[in-house]
Design a protein around this nucleic acid. Sequence first.
DNA 1: CTGCTGGCCATGGAATCCCATAGCCAGCAG
DNA 2: CTGCTGGCTATGGGATTCCATGGCCAGCAG
Lengths: 202, 202
Amino acid sequence: MKLAGAAADRDRWEARDCSIDGALKIVGTRSAMLLMREAHYGTTRFEDFVRRVGITEAVAAARLRELVTAGLLARRAYKNPGERTRHEYVLTEAGGELQLVLMAFIQWGDRHLPRRGGPPLDFRHTGCEEPIAVRLSCAAGHDVEPGAITVRGTWGRPTPATEKATGKAAGKATAEAAADVTADVTAAVAAEGAGKDVSPAG
Amino acid sequence: MKLAGAAADRDRWEARDCSIDGALKIVGTRSAMLLMREAHYGTTRFEDFVRRVGITEAVAAARLRELVTAGLLARRAYKNPGERTRHEYVLTEAGGELQLVLMAFIQWGDRHLPRRGGPPLDFRHTGCEEPIAVRLSCAAGHDVEPGAITVRGTWGRPTPATEKATGKAAGKATAEAAADVTADVTAAVAAEGAGKDVSPAG
DNA sequence: CTGCTGGCCATGGAATCCCATAGCCAGCAG
DNA sequence: CTGCTGGCTATGGGATTCCATGGCCAGCAG
């Protein structure tokens, strides 16, 4: 990666609003990540989560509640005929998109974790049956080699992307930052409060 | 995802050798993941890691040592003229390939974390300057939609992939598994006893 | 009414992770 | 020789994360 533009001097900005850090606050624990793994494998019931992940009910209950609050899972009532009403945990859109993170982990682990006998699971494209890989590509369709990434801060002078990315919500901050690029990062990038408003989807 | 083949019945196998779990043992803490982030942003010196990640020296020292042991970073001596010998931490190949995990986290966080003003960083393909995305694709070049993944266990009858994946390192296991598919999962994937009948799921 | 099951909460204790503070050591500057 | 700086190590305490055990509750079976 190459830092450029407003991000060029790494000591001038703090990565406080970093998406990695934010994501880790939600799925940063082993139990949370493995629960999401199980959800992607199709598990929906409390007891199945507990058994398949190998955690205690207390931890499962706490973690599932957090994941529902964070909008990665939705808790839904359902009822099989002749049975009592139960609850199931289903992936929301946000939870479903965690698939790329899970697949990236799996791909990395399959390649770099010392293990006897190759990867335990085989992931293939349904239908064409070719093996699946996580890749980096740009909007022009090019494969992106690991070193060919340029990172820019969006708080400085607007780039083609920040024009529309920040235009709607941070016009003021953009103007400020454009005027003085030095002492800005914590004001424009970092922050603390959080609005949470999540809608369960598909 | 669709579970198929030997993996079809989720209650018949344990995900103990799971790559996600294995990866989390190495980069599962906030400090480790953020240190890897900084390494990808080009940081190499101890003090810079401490300051830029915002952790204490004690934690940085411990985590860096673990990451070196795990093979994600390499500790190298170097000497600028007129200065004492110092050590730098540089990415190994395994560490470099964690980029997909980091980018997947960033992409997910940029889309789903509530935030005002859009993502703080902008990642573009060096040269062509188009925005970068993490994607799933198969060896035939197709984009893989989230639902179009078929997951199979490699411990059962060999798939086209396990032929060569396990062929070099676990030829014996493959032979055993092919001969008798029953007491397999615990031996190949998990580790604990639970020999039950397995119907050749498909 | 009692028993059973699935889903969940409460408690106590252990382990892990982190911070803050306070050193230690090597080597260059003075 | 002393001071200073970068790169650590040590100690003590707090927060988080987890496990094990046990209890609570809803609702269906008997």
